[in-house]
Design a protein around this nucleic acid. Structure first.
Length: 463
RNA sequence: GGCGGGGUAGCAAAAUGGUUAUGCCGCGGCCUGCAAAGCCGUUUACGCCGGUUCGAUUCCGACCCCCGCCUCCA
């Protein structure tokens, strides 16, 4: 039995699929106008982990993650760059895929793009008009009349009358109510033709929220199991999605809402204005992608996660321990026996709202056991189980030696040169010339290369 | 102002009414030519004040502090 924290209910609930054995899940993806940051990395890693666990648990998973390829920021950036919208978005879709692939994210089953679903959006807007929930404003925009939708605020638990409308942002006088949101934006004369679509309400382009209602409905139907995204999307985005989809279809939209916590820097939310913003590729230039994945998964998905080099160093050292174990103790081929105590605890943790923190702790306990029994079949079995369980989290699947020796490709110390130094040191040691052997080792240490003398000979790794 | 999340050892991060979380770092020991790795051990942990209880970090109440959403945002 899998339980998950449902934002809609504000409590953990047992997961009951609409169709037995099937999980239909929609996750809000990226707006492609810039490189993805580590907050995006957390979001996709978390829902990748969720998909993997459902699959491991025997479910058929339909994982949909959209790509927002039309919006104000995209238009602005394309204009600044003097390039077509399509060229800009294609470039950043490619960059996104590179980054996510590096993180070991399994591609979602569908990655719909907003611009391919304009018809679906218009269809929903028409239904909203039919039901009296949409109206055309004097300026040509189409708005959703929030107060006419009963249950508005049920996800974010916001009471319309308690909001301080207009306190931070000036109220658009075209709206009948400050809380109303745009469904369709009328075309502006200075906008390029590629952002204008014909519609019953005049040429224009969709509002932000409507795309997810349309794409989710297209791939998963009017009613599906899980909808995920970053916690900031809870309001207004997800609240508005509910209003649109349930308003248009007259039935429940989503059973379980999952929201991942943010990555913070110095305990504050990352934001460009604070200048504490980190894009994935900059981090990957400094740290192995698996370190970043491990860093994300060792925390619980709903907790805030502080980012800094110190924390990544910590994660890196911890991951090195695991890989070192697998290097030292050959992993046996293991079919997971879920009754085995470690495996059972791993499963119980994952079933409990994806408690990867506890699952990772089990990994370390297996490493300890494997190290203690390194020479025996028990040890190989434990190492094998460690690797098998880690696979579910998308971790520890590389050749340990390769992982430990990776990086520093720009170093003058190539593998060949290191091997040569090790041979020279071996000769010095054979003649008990400790001064020379230590000199060689110190030289390597200074270059960030650690030597380890074992019964089977000397091995090396990069720090 | 409304709504929500949180304060755990040097750092990071979980669970839990009484029993070792886990990892990193530091320190001591074993091992080693010396190291590294590994193993063993180790550093007054639970924001503050009351209450319930045989017993609370863990439940209840008050208080202090931090963070998020209420605007585009993962």
């Amino acid at each position: 039995m899998i339980t998950l924290y449902n934002t809609l209910a504000r409590e953990k609930q047992e997961f009951k699929p609409i169709t037995p054995g099937v999980v239909n899940m929609y996750v809000c993806g990226i707006t492609v106008y810039d490189y993805c940051h580590i907050g995006h990395a957390r979001m996709v890693t978390v829902f990748d982990m969720v998909s993997r666990w459902f699959r491991e648990s025997g479910f058929q998973v339909n994982h949909v993650r959209n790509i927002t390829d039309i919006d104000d920021k995209i238009i602005k950036r394309a204009t600044e760059n003097g390039e077509p919208i399509g060229a800009l978005t294609e470039r950043f879709v490619a960059a996104m895929n590179e980054d996510f692939d590096a993180l070991g994210i399994i591609r979602p089953d569908h990655e719909p793009r907003a611009t391919d679903h304009i018809d679906g959006m218009q269809s929903i807007i028409s239904k909203l008009f039919d039901r009296g929930l949409a109206y055309s404003a004097p300026n040509g925009d189409v708005y959703y009349s929030v107060r006419k939708f009963q249950g508005y605020g049920k996800l974010s638990r916001k009471n319309l009358d308690d909001q301080r409308a207009g306190e931070r942002v000036e109220i658009d006088t075209n709206k009948q109510d400050a809380a109303d949101f745009v469904l369709w934006k009328h075309a502006k004369t200075d906008e390029p033709g590629e952002v204008k679509w014909a519609s019953p309400w005049g040429a224009g382009r969709p509002g932000w929220h409507i795309e997810c209602s349309a794409m989710a409905c297209h791939h998963l139907g009017e009613h599906f199991d899980i909808h995920g995204g970053g916690e900031d999307l809870q309001f207004p985005h997800h609240e508005n999605e509910i209003a649109q989809s349930e308003g248009a279809h007259g039935s429940q939209y989503v059973n379980y809402w999952l929201h991942n916590g943010f990555i913070n820097v110095d305990n504050e939310k990352m934001s460009k204005s604070l200048g504490n913003f980190f894009i994935i590729r900059d981090v990957l230039a400094k740290y192995d992608a698996e370190v970043l994945r491990f860093f994300i998964l060792r925390a619980h998905y709903r907790s805030p996660l502080n980012y800094s080099d110190v924390h990544l160093d910590d994660a890196k050292n911890a991951l090195t321990r695991l890989y070192t174990t697998l290097k030292t103790v050959p992993a046996a081929d293991v079919v997971i026996d879920w009754v085995e105590p470690h495996a059972a605890r791993f499963k119980a943790a994952m079933n409990d709202d994806f408690a990867t923190t506890e699952a990772v702790a089990v990994l370390f306990e297996l490493a300890l056991y494997a190290n203690k029994h390194a020479a025996s079949a028990e040890g190989a079995q434990a190492a094998g189980l460690l690797k098998a369980l880690a696979k579910i989290l998308g971790l520890l699947q590389r050749d340990p030696e390769s992982y430990l020796q990776a990086g520093a490709s720009n170093s003058e110390w190539t593998a060949d040169k290191i091997e040569a130094a090790i041979i020279a040191r071996k000769e010095a040691r054979a003649s008990k010339n400790w001064a020379e052997s230590d000199r060689i080792r110190d030289e390597l240490t200074a270059a960030g290369i650690v030597l380890e003398d074992t019964a089977q000979g000397t091995t090396w790794r990069r720090e």
